[in-house]
Nucleic acid binder design. Structure first.
Lengths: 318, 318
DNA sequence: TTGTACGCGTTATCAG
DNA sequence: CTGATAACGCGTACAA
């Protein structure tokens, strides 16, 4: 900065002000400074800046799984909100197989992110509270008690799915979950309740193999399956086809996420669109508010999903 | 660090050494220091560390498009290599629609990444050289003249595809490209050459609509289409089905990337697996070498792809 | 193995 | 707009 200042015939302070975009430099001086900077190949050192500034206002974004389309949608939403406001964003990506969210979130803290937006972290509620605290985190895609959370209204999604299946005449359905049936799964529990209210009997299956087995179990078998996400749903459709059960004639299948695959004609999967991009936007907005007021009480934002009906669901004709 | 040092009864230097995992602290002292650190809620400031250290050895990774499965594979490969060696990785994600790669790569430079691994950047060769220089960049997924590059052997991929289609009796094929037919596209050009050598006539189409039109154009129409990626291939299959042309009876289709979708039974797409994870690994290794020797001559690494044959390609029976 | 002292490149403040 | 000065939190000789 000193060199740039000298070359532009101004003080170092002014160079700093110019590059920060702070007020206090005339337009022409600013240009002269930038010209000198380009000439000298100067590039501000973000580390030094964050170190020196007391009010860095930078956000961290933790993404659990790059392969999940949910992730890219959330990312887009966050970026959309942050772009206009030029708030720096630091990224960290987890590894769903390793369960090492903590390490990557710590990276964000090491870089001094003021608030972390955590998408789909698998950390326990109290771990999140201990590691980040109410004043440092916004959870996306999952409700965490005691901190800002932005998520799909699972109850609404479940109600839509149950109503749809019920309307088609299904009376027995299975839920194909992501995790151990003993673990907590808000999606599963919401579906349990909604199905009961719709007069549909529910059972939970742990994997695709299990699901196929149940569907073919004869008397009392489920005639529809609600999968926790599209990929699982598509794998199920595949596996069913492999044993001669065709969708939707032999079994109705509903997915979750409404990924691009779902709309492919050969797949044509009925699916819940949870508007992940909107989730990202709302999370970013909450994070910004938290930045300015670390003490405000935590808020939970529910986003209404939409059920997209396609040909993987059809009337059940016993 | 001073507080931690005081609390542990040692000097600040030693705390620094302990947290860096550098040699020079006894095991018991280290433990005592960590205990004090935990007690005080101390977390090393990565910005200060990078600022103070002359040899930060940190890599930057630019990813053009989170939605592209290629991206996550490359990411996994890079991470795999870097994890054992504890080299810090800073991420930047581009926006394929905005063509603002430059901005995001500059973020990496602002954070003082020593070497940037650029996956699928759309920056022109000379822009990359001007922005980063030979000593600061490794390109993945695309050859950039004058800098380290890691990419698929397109010629080999094209030869495999042409041989496969030729063997099935196809004599006229189309290439469905990503970009304007006037732009450079190594994949397209490789296919052009390989097809000619295999005695197949080639034409280039710009989009799915165009492709469908050509396939249905009657006498002299292409009987097979090679798409630049799986998503385009799948959309094409869809569009063809929409006008009554079924794959593979009416037209053979080959994709690129061998994404998880390709293996779904309902899709069953013949596709080129370019081993993107391996590309990521090789890129990371090159980046590490460049870190230690900024002046070594640039290297180009070609990774051999594999053609995965599925039922979207079949003999052409005129 | 430990302590001392300096510097890394900025931000921020303040009197001019 | 200048010029001076004090942090920011740490890495790294160097000497003990």
């Amino acid at each position: 900065m000193y060199d740039v200042a000298t070359s532009a015939g101004v003080s170092q302070s002014l160079v700093s002000i110019a590059y920060r975009g702070a007020p206090g430099v005339s337009e022409e001086t600013r240009e002269r400074i930038f010209a000198a900077g380009r000439r000298l190949g100067f590039r501000p050192n973000a580390n030094a800046a964050r170190l020196a500034s007391r009010t860095a206002r930078t956000l961290g974004l933790f993404l659990l799984d790059l392969r999940n389309p949910f992730t890219s949608d959330v990312f887009d939403g966050v970026r959309e909100v942050l772009q206009d406001r030029d708030v720096p964003l630091i990224l960290a990506v987890g590894d769903p197989a390793r369960h090492d969210d903590r390490v990557h979130i710590e990276d964000l803290l090491g870089a001094r992110a003021d608030v972390v937006i955590a998408a789909q972290t698998t950390l326990a509620d109290d771990e999140v509270l201990e590691l980040l605290g109410v004043e440092r985190v916004v959870s996306v895609g999952r409700a965490i008690v005691g901190v800002d959370s932005v998520l799909t209204d699972e109850s609404s999604a479940a109600t839509d799915v149950a109503a749809h299946l019920g309307g088609l005449g299904h009376r027995r359905a299975a839920y194909l979950g992501a995790s151990n049936p003993d673990d907590a799964d808000p999606r599963r529990e919401a579906f349990r309740r909604a199905a009961r209210d719709a007069g549909i009997e529910i059972e939970v299956v742990a994997d695709v193999v299990d699901a196929v087995g149940r569907v073919r179990s004869g008397e009392g078998a489920p005639t529809a399956v609600f999968a926790h996400n599209d990929l699982a749903a598509i794998r199920l459709v595949d596996a069913l086809a492999g044993v001669g059960v065709h969708v939707p004639e032999g079994c109705s299948v509903v997915g979750f996420d409404d990924t691009p695959l779902a709309s492919v004609r050969a797949v044509s999967l009925t699916s819940v669109d949870q508007h992940a991009r909107e989730l990202g936007r709302r999370a970013a907005l909450l994070a910004l508010e938290r930045l300015d007021d670390p003490l405000r009480p935590p808020e939970t934002v529910l986003v209404e999903p939409d059920l997209i009906v396609r040909s993987s669901t059809a009337p059940y004709l016993s």
